[in-house]
Design a protein around this nucleic acid. Sequence first.
DNA 1: GTGGTCTAGACCACA
DNA 2: GTGGTCTAGACCACC
Lengths: 121, 121, 121, 121
Amino acid sequence: MEKGYNSRVPVYLKIAYDMREKILLGDLKPQQKMPSIRKLALELNLNPNTVKKAYEVLENQKLIKSNSTVGTFVTDDLELLLEERINNSFETITLETKELKKLGVSLNSVLEGIEKKWKVL
Amino acid sequence: MEKGYNSRVPVYLKIAYDMREKILLGDLKPQQKMPSIRKLALELNLNPNTVKKAYEVLENQKLIKSNSTVGTFVTDDLELLLEERINNSFETITLETKELKKLGVSLNSVLEGIEKKWKVL
Amino acid sequence: MEKGYNSRVPVYLKIAYDMREKILLGDLKPQQKMPSIRKLALELNLNPNTVKKAYEVLENQKLIKSNSTVGTFVTDDLELLLEERINNSFETITLETKELKKLGVSLNSVLEGIEKKWKVL
Amino acid sequence: MEKGYNSRVPVYLKIAYDMREKILLGDLKPQQKMPSIRKLALELNLNPNTVKKAYEVLENQKLIKSNSTVGTFVTDDLELLLEERINNSFETITLETKELKKLGVSLNSVLEGIEKKWKVL
DNA sequence: GTGGTCTAGACCACA
DNA sequence: GTGGTCTAGACCACC
């Protein structure tokens, strides 16, 4: 879909996404120190501001917490946070399901639709 | 200026929601004329501007179409519109499902969760 | 690995919460020895690591103090700690109140809202 | 409290705060166009990136929505958003109140504490 | 014209 | 060392 020069996902989002994966998969554990902005920038051959922006994204998602003069750390409330996320997702799904029911879609259609997509996800 | 603790959703949104229900349930049919803003305002004992705002919401959702000289009408593309809505809902559900999968929730948990809620909806 | 739809809060947090209650309510008194991790794990039919994690939470909150050779004890600074907690809560409430004022909520709405909830708490 | 060179609130937060005020007070209305990043930067004699950062803060708060190639606009869901904010604040206050009750604080102390602060806010 | 991204590099406070 | 802020200025895509 995209290639070369203009791979239209911003660099800072890719970094954020990668680090998010590492956190979710337990590669980076709660309370653990993240690589420092400068170091990661050097390593990835990027401007520190770009890395900073990635970290800001993760901080907005409460996955990490920055502490000036010390470093950046994976949140210690990770499990709680994930529970919250899961509940939120279920809530959204419930709302949309409600909508579908009102629009005349059957329960089976909904379940099948989800099941079919699940494997491809 | 002052919002009480129990004020919850603004009135104009409630009206929009109610009229939406009537349209989706076929109580108001495609191409049918909506009650005039003034009449509805009188009936509900509200400021016409509030009703106008509700109608604007519905028009943004393409459920109705305003024709300044003649009145307001339910869209004639209702079927198409509903299909679009259904697709949108499914898309949202797919996105959230993707999120849930990544967060470690099983397909069965998702399906069961939806099924359980469905009956109560 | 797998989180069911109804799993809600992780077990170790529940335990931490329960023990916290016991400490705050004076069921476990300052300087008193906490049940040993192994004993509590047996009693609750849980993995000792789960209990250990709960104790870590409480230690982070300075409610207990671990002494590797002797055991785990309720802090002796409990009074001071409670005062701190109360101040923190008041500070949070003040911040939120400030927000509410800016959003146009009246003092009476706030007070009434709190009073109403208080009885149900 | 602060003066001169080192007034320790970052410029971008001041801007965000000012614009937020304008939105909440209705000075900038829902769906209305915000001043463009470049124009505001010129006007305030700042680097566009600084203004951009301020706008990012507001966008994170869902108060505004950026639309490349067109401009930045006050959200059209403002009323709904504010309702949500109010409910959130009340929820937080309720949680903290619950905490205070458990810590042995009386209802009157809580109400008085809030009332005293309210005037100074 | 608009916002979005990214670099290069400065200075700050804190410890 | 750390993160936080800010400037200066480039290029991009979209319309």
